[in-house]
Design a protein around this nucleic acid. Structure first.
Length: 489
RNA sequence: GGCCCGUUCGUCUAGCGGUUAGGACACCGCCCUCUCAAGGCGGAGAUCACGGGUUCGAAUCCCGUACGGGCUACCA
């Protein structure tokens, strides 16, 4: 009863890692780490049609990017492999063989059409609409004869007659009871001999000695079926924990129309892995109801299934973005500078290794953007003016900033003041610029906005004096001159 | 149709018989301020889906109802 904790995340490589799958993986991982257990990654690729190696690669990369590491699975192996279902066919055959031998499985020769007709009839009658067990009544001899004659057939589980209700204590939902008489003799192996999902997972969870199955809510109704198989196999039934779904803003299942649903889409959208991990962890789990910023470490040290909520959660992009901003602001200038380089390079502003050649410059730049961006993708547009040869202000911005006559003359004065500076620093630039409106008797803001547009090309930018300091005297003065030329016709 | 699950501010949640129902995002106002942010302070926002019980007392326990979701496949 006190087996060492072994949990697994078993995605189907039929697409990239979905946000809901990521959360399931996070909970499994956190639970394993918290309890000193083993986190296993298994690839459920029985669906050969839709499964691809490429998707498997994407899923592994996404998990790693999130900071999750597995103890057994693809790329690292383990004592319970293989970790791809496609490579475990032999195990499923063996398991089916043993069920056959012990009388827990029987062949069914009913055709798809027959089954569909029966189902429909049963449903219109009301009540139970599962398989009517026609073939279960066949004698062993007759069944064997028909198999020998080459009759196509599937193998079904023989749900024990007169069995008690199937109950289990879900770690999240508590006691769950399914009436045994509503249990279907579902299919274990298809006509082609391949195992169905409900059979393959049970065999795998059994063979891999999984102790806790933490998975999506959509499997809750599959659980009694799987329990029947565990029991028929003589295997210990693991503890189950069913997570509710993640929904889109409209309360419908999260799908493409709600925007990005894959982990890599958020990565590409400038979301930090620690922020996504934090957000997803809290979407259905709480540390204490108060804390919102939870590190991976805090998560693995405090995770508990008792604090997982039962109700479905709506994915709130705004909160994720806020959280991402928090993580950006928490970074030291050096961390931010290093991590923003790929994004600057991606935007074509500079080479990623430029950080090495101008470290100080980037260390001064980082704090300027840290508190005004929510996503890493917003950095390049915000600082692009520092990398451009020249800027052209948007017409509306120019119109607004240079509308005032005094602004233009102040611009000229500012240009003079700056070009005559001995020392070029944030402090000296600020002192020089503040002196101008004072002597001209105009509002500082009028000048500052005019300078901002002239130098950055926009009415909105990082702090002005710091920006000029980083831009350098030559470029700053040149931009002011260009703006003057423009404003004067 | 049958079976199962869910329901606390717009959203994520705290709460596990006695609270002015707490926090976070978003929203509004004020302060700070060279723009935008960030930050600080404050505000508004939940008759705890509804109806019955149990109890001195219920968001918390029980039963119904409604609404939403899942399963009911030789998908996973």
């Amino acid at each position: 009863m006190t087996r060492p904790v072994r949990v697994r995340f078993a995605p189907s490589p039929t697409g990239s890692l979905h946000i809901g799958g990521a959360r399931t993986a996070i909970y499994n991982w956190a639970f394993a780490r918290r309890s000193g257990g083993t986190f296993i990654l298994r690839i459920d690729d029985t669906d050969a049609e839709r499964s691809t190696q490429e998707n498997t690669g994407v899923i592994l990369r996404s998990l790693r990017w999130l900071g999750l590491d597995w103890d057994e699975g693809p790329e690292i192996g383990g004592a319970y492999g293989p970790y791809f279902q496609a490579e475990r066919a032999g195990l499923y055959h063996e398991a089916l063989e043993s069920l056959r031998a012990s009388g827990h499985a029987y062949p069914c020769f009913c055709s798809a059409e027959e089954l569909a007709a029966k189902r429909e009839a049963a449903r219109s009658r009301g009540g139970f609409s599962g398989y009517d067990r026609t073939c279960r009544a066949l004698s062993a001899q007759e069944a064997a004869d028909r198999i020998d004659a080459g009759a196509p057939h599937v193998w079904r589980i023989k749900v024990p007659v007169g069995r008690d209700d199937i109950t289990f204590d879900d770690a999240i939902r508590g006691e769950i009871i399914f009436p045994a008489d509503a249990m279907d003799d579902f299919v274990l192996a298809r006509t082609d001999g391949s195992p169905t999902y409900n059979f393959a997972t049970v065999v795998d969870d059994w063979k891999m000695e999984i102790t806790h199955v933490i998975r999506g809510d959509d499997h809750l109704s599959n659980t009694p079926r799987q329990i029947v198989v565990f029991e028929a196999l003589g295997a210990e039934v693991p503890r189950f924990a069913h997570l509710s779904m993640i929904w889109g803003a409209d309360g419908k299942k999260l799908s493409k129309r709600h925007g990005a649903t894959s982990v890599e889409a958020y990565r590409d959208g400038g979301i930090l892995p620690e922020a996504l991990l934090n957000y997803l962890a809290l979407l259905g789990w709480s540390l204490d109801g108060e804390t919102t910023i939870v590190s991976a470490r805090t998560l693995t040290e405090n995770f508990s299934m008792e604090r997982i909520s039962k109700n479905p959660a709506i994915f709130d992009l705004e909160k994720l973005e806020w959280m991402n901003g928090v993580y950006i602001r928490e970074m030291s200038p050096r961390q931010l500078a290093e991590r923003m380089m790929p994004w600057l390079a991606e935007a074509g502003l500079t080479a990623a290794d430029d950080f090495q050649t101008r470290e100080t410059w980037y260390l001064e730049l980082a704090p300027l953007v840290s508190e005004r961006v929510k996503r890493m993708t917003e950095i390049a547009p915000a600082v692009g003016f520092l990398f451009a040869d020249e800027v052209t202000a948007e017409a509306s911005a120019a119109a607004k900033a240079y509308a005032d006559e005094t602004a233009v003359s102040a611009l000229a004065a500012a240009s003079d003041a700056l070009s005559g500076l001995d020392v070029w620093s944030t402090e000296s630039v600020e002192a020089a610029l503040r002196a101008v409106p004072e002597s001209l008797g105009i509002k500082p803001k009028v000048l500052f906005q005019a300078v901002r547009v002239a130098v950055t090309g926009s009415l909105v930018s990082p702090p002005l004096f710091e920006s000029l300091a980083l831009l350098g005297r030559e470029a700053s003065v040149a931009r002011l001159q260009a703006a003057l030329a423009l404003a004067n016709g």
